[in-house]
Deep mutational scan, measured.
Amino acid sequence: MGFKLLSKLLVYLTASIMAIASPLAFSVDSSGEYPTVSEIPVGEVRLYQIADGVWSHIATQSFDGAVYPSNGLIVRDGDELLLIDTAWGAKNTAALLAEIEKQIGLPVTRAVSTHFHDDRVGGVDVLRAAGVATYASPSTRRLAEVEGNEIPTHSLEGLSSSGDAVRFGPVELFYPGAAHSTDNLIVYVPSASVLYGGCAIYELSRTSAGNVADADLAEWPTSIERIQQHYPEAQFVIPGHGLPGGLDLLKHTTNVVKAHTNRSVVE
């Protein structure tokens, strides 16, 4: 069995187990497998329904001669939608809004960016022009300005110390501490036991640490421990890039980060 097929099978099995364990909360999309990078042309966006009122959005972007996937989250909030992270750029984010209108038909009224990198804030200006209120932590807003990236308009308070959590509509926002970046936030959907790890969490097929220019490698494993301790009931975990899975993604990420750190020390 090929690795790609095995990865998709694991996603399907995880979703099936969740649907059985929580039949009222989960209505997993039966329309197909989780979209992969090879299936999404740059400039297009796919939506994948995880649970009743919960979707991931998947886009792709060219970077350094390669094409990478990027995940975000959409959560229903009454007759409105909360968006977590842009679709990595203005063109993708405009396509995301169009796809949401086509498939869901509810307005996106608020959006949260989970850290300051372009795959999370690139497209904020498109959201703002569409009347979406954009939010991020003060740290993310400051770092985005320093980096020359787009800056969300509103500040999220109460997320300055490791372990801080605040309720934001249908989700809980959690600051686990520094990891992929010093400002990275985690998003949890309690009604569906869905954990969105953003770039602080890796997919299972990833074996290298990737972009760690703004990471705190020493603190990252401790931050992941905080996530595990705060959300032990999480059933569906979405990484910032690639295929979702279960809580095993947290341990896998820790292993990859520690291996990278150990290699760096040896070198």
Rank of each mutant, 00 (worst) to 15 (best):
M1R: 11
S7H: 05
L9M: 07
L10F: 03
V11G: 09
A15Y: 15
S16G: 07
A21Y: 07
P23G: 11
S27P: 05
Y34R: 11
P35R: 11
P35Y: 04
V37M: 11
V37S: 09
I40N: 05
P41K: 11
V45F: 06
L47V: 08
A51Y: 15
W55S: 10
Q61P: 05
F63H: 12
F63Y: 02
G65I: 14
A66I: 14
V67Q: 05
V67P: 06
V67D: 05
P69T: 05
S70L: 12
N71G: 07
G72L: 00
I74C: 14
I74A: 12
V75F: 04
G78Q: 08
L81I: 12
A87C: 14
G89D: 11
K91G: 10
N92T: 15
T93C: 13
T93H: 01
L97N: 02
A98K: 00
L106S: 10
T109V: 10
A111C: 09
V112H: 01
T114W: 00
F116V: 06
H117G: 00
H117W: 00
V121A: 10
G122M: 14
D125R: 09
R128Q: 05
V132G: 03
A133N: 04
S137E: 04
P138S: 14
S139Y: 06
R142V: 11
E147I: 15
E147M: 13
G148K: 08
P152A: 11
T153A: 06
H154T: 15
H154G: 10
L156I: 03
D164S: 08
V166K: 13
A178P: 09
H180T: 00
T182S: 09
D183W: 01
N184Y: 00
P190M: 03
P190Y: 04
S193C: 11
L195Y: 00
G198K: 00
C199L: 01
L204E: 03
L204A: 05
S205I: 10
A209T: 05
N211E: 10
A213Q: 06
A213I: 13
Q229E: 08
A234W: 02
A234C: 03
I238L: 06
G240T: 02
G242Q: 02
G245W: 08
G246H: 05
L247W: 06
L249W: 01
T254R: 10
N255G: 13
T261V: 10
N262P: 09
